[in-house]
């Protein structure tokens, strides 16, 4: 039962980029098209799942003081593996994503989940958490990517959707579109949240993260990182 609970929390209640505001840089930069979003999401899912498993396996062996360094090394090793795999099998996508593949290692979602969840829970729960968060991240990126691609280029996964008279709104696939789209989605999520909590008569839902506030508020989730 708790496996199911840990799995589903990443899909809506703690949806990584939209609720926890974790790892915003790749969210903004690579979602120029639905395909890029999906590719980036799958890469992050892979690293997140494996790093959760490994961290959870070695959680009793690692001394408390050097745990962050160990987590960073584990995730960096996995990112190198992903880079090599992508170069071998999906080279065009690797080129499209550019420096954002190596930058998965500084994505706070990986370290955040390792520190907040995998280091305290048994392997099967860490798997559930990694899968749920990773799939939530992938879906969010694909959603944002499709939104921007449909408005900005008039296509969805490369297939035209509007017919040939549609004048693409190119701004949406450039940098400004990313900010504006993400801002509007976050606003919409807040709105849904407020309606939901009003219906239940509760105070607004707080975002649970490592340091107790949202990632964006503390500017990088790294207070926990070096302490």
């Amino acid at each position: 039962m708790s496996f199911y609970k840990e799995f589903t929390k990443g899909l809506w209640n703690e949806l990584p980029p939209f609720r926890l505001l974790l790892g915003l840089c790749p969210v903004l930069a690579v979602t120029k098209s639905a395909q890029n979003g999906l590719g980036m999401g799958v890469a992050v899912l892979f690293v997140l799942l494996l790093s959760n498993i490994i961290v959870s396996l070695v959680r009793d062996i690692i001394p408390k003081k050097v745990r962050i360094a160990c987590f960073v090394t584990i995730s960096a090793t996995l990112v190198v593996a992903v880079e090599l795999l992508m170069q071998a099998y999906t080279y065009p996508l690797y080129q499209q994503l550019g420096i954002f593949v190596p930058l998965i290692v500084v994505n706070c979602i990986i370290l955040g989940r390792a520190e907040a969840f995998a280091a305290k829970n048994p392997v099967y729960l860490a798997v559930a958490d990694g899968l749920g968060m990773g799939i939530g991240f992938t879906l969010s990126l694909t959603f944002l990517g499709s939104l921007r691609e449909i408005i900005g280029a008039g296509t969805f996964f490369g297939v035209p959707v509007f017919g040939e008279y549609y004048q693409p709104f190119t701004m949406m696939i450039e940098a400004p579109g990313a900010f504006i789209c993400l801002g509007c989605i976050l606003g919409f999520m807040n709105y849904l949240n407020r309606i939901q909590s009003r219906r239940k008569g509760l105070a607004a839902h707080k975002n649970p993260t490592v340091c107790g506030s949202t990632c964006a508020q503390c500017g990088g989730c790294s207070k926990a990182n070096l302490s």
Binding site: F179, I180, L182, G183, L186, G187, N190, T214
Partner: peptide, 9 residues
């Protein structure tokens, strides 16, 4: 955050 992202845009 939402409004600051829109402003960033």
């Amino acid at each position: 955050t939402p409004i600051s992202l829109v402003m960033g845009g």
